[in-house]
Every structure is written in C-alpha cells, then in structure tokens.
C-alpha cells in the first residue's frame, strides 16, 4: 500500500521538525556538557594549569566507557534513566536523553583534541602574563580553539542527525522513524528515498555552514 503524497508531505514536514528539535536540543545540552568535560579533561591533566590526576582519570574513564557503547545499545540500556528524567521512554523527548548521553562524551573528546592542538607555549605565555586559570581557559584557550571547536561541533551535529534517525527505531519520531515505519516495514521505496535525501541535504547543509562559520572565525 502506497502512501498518499497529497497528505503525506505534512507527515514528512512534521518528521523533519521532530528531527530538528531532537538534534537541536540534544546538541545544545551535549555541547554544554561536552565543552565543560573537554576543558576539564585538558586542564586537569599532568602538567596543566589545574593538574588534578584523580579528577582526570575518573572523567577520562567515564568518557571512554560511554564512548565505547554503540548508540543503539546505549539507548536501550539507559531506558530506566530516561524514564526517570522525562517520565517516559517513548517519543521525541525520550529520544533526547540518550542522544545527550551519547553526544556529550563524544563532544568532550573533540573539544579535548581541539584544545590540545593549541601550542603549549601559548598557555605558558598566559601563565607568564599572570593570567588566572579561569582567564587562561576563557580568554586564551577557548578563543584560540574557537574555529576548530565549530568544526568539532559540526561533526558532532552530523553524528547526532545519524543517531536521531536511529532513535526513530524505538519510536523517537523524526525522519528516521518515518523511514523505518514506511520505507522499511512497508517496503515504500519512495518514502525511503525522500527521507534519505532529506537527511543528506540536512547533513550537507550542516557541514557547509560549519565550514563557512569556522573559516570566518579564522578570519583569513
């Protein structure tokens, strides 16, 4: 049974909206968590401005564990936690929780890498200027890494688009849900193609704007 395209495009629009909401909210939250964790993972390591090996080792281990669980398993494994947070384990809101748990540590690693790419000499210069650790982080490290952080966040966003499509498999709504419900389970190739094309457009658009913004920030 084929869908009626006269009305189905409304569903597609809704699904696209759901995907954008899922990705947007989880991006916002996981970016905050990721930047925070990433910064802590850098400044608490050996020889850095706020060296604290116990903190570093614990966070490092947590990030590693979360990063090594495939999203589809993570999603199921944390259902009790999801229910605790949003009261349900089905729907768009419920999909956002595992997305954050998934993307937070991922972004943390990307942020960590971006910050580690900064020449240690620059941190040393900040110290020699008499900068506080706080100033070193917010006035020196993050601004220096900003354009590379934007690229990292772009990568993370695209990862989230992919993961959010997977979240559709457990009733998370969005384009992934649509693709599975109609395209896969009902063998409606047209729906499949339309959703996949939409996802591709979305990813391309994100990557291009990420590149442009990052290049602007590099100002050269």
């Amino acid at each position: 049974m084929q869908v009626d395209w006269g009305t189905f495009w409304v569903d597609i629009l809704d699904a696209t909206g759901d995907t954008l909401i899922m990705v947007g909210i989880s991006l916002l939250a996981s970016a905050v968590i990721g930047v925070l964790l990433g910064v802590i993972l850098v400044v608490t390591r050996k020889g850095h401005i706020l060296e604290n090996l116990p903190v570093f080792n614990v966070l490092n281990a947590i990030v590693n564990v979360l990063r090594s669980i495939p999203f589809i398993i993570l999603m199921v494994a944390i259902i009790p936690f999801t229910r605790l947070v949003v009261g349900t384990s089905i729907g768009t809101a419920a999909a956002i929780v595992p997305l954050i748990v998934y993307a937070g540590p991922y972004i943390a690693r990307l942020v960590e890498n971006s910050l580690l790419e900064i020449d240690p000499g620059i941190v040393e210069a900040a110290e020699a200027m008499g900068a506080t650790p706080w100033q070193t982080i917010f006035r020196i490290l993050l601004p220096e890494a900003f354009s590379s952080l934007i690229l990292s966040l772009t990568t993370a966003t695209i990862g989230l688009v992919g993961a959010s499509a997977m979240a559709g498999a457990v009733g998370g709504g969005g384009l992934g849900d649509l693709a599975i419900a109609y395209g896969y389970q009902r063998f409606d190739t047209d729906v499949m193609i339309v959703t996949v094309v939409l996802l591709i457009v979305l990813v391309q658009g994100l990557q291009s704007s990420g590149n442009v913004i990052s290049r602007r920030l590099r100002r050269r």
């Binding site: 020449d119 000499g121 620059i122 040393e124 210069a125 020699a128």
Partner: peptide, 15 residues
C-alpha cells in the same frame, strides 16, 4: 606582571 617574558617561538595568540 612585573616580569615580562618573550619566547623563541613567540607564542602569540593566532586568533
């Protein structure tokens, strides 16, 4: 702040 320092590789803020 009373002790300035300069470096072999300058260590300027590139951004």
């Amino acid at each position: 702040k009373n002790i300035g320092m300069i470096f072999q590789h300058f260590n300027l803020l590139n951004a």
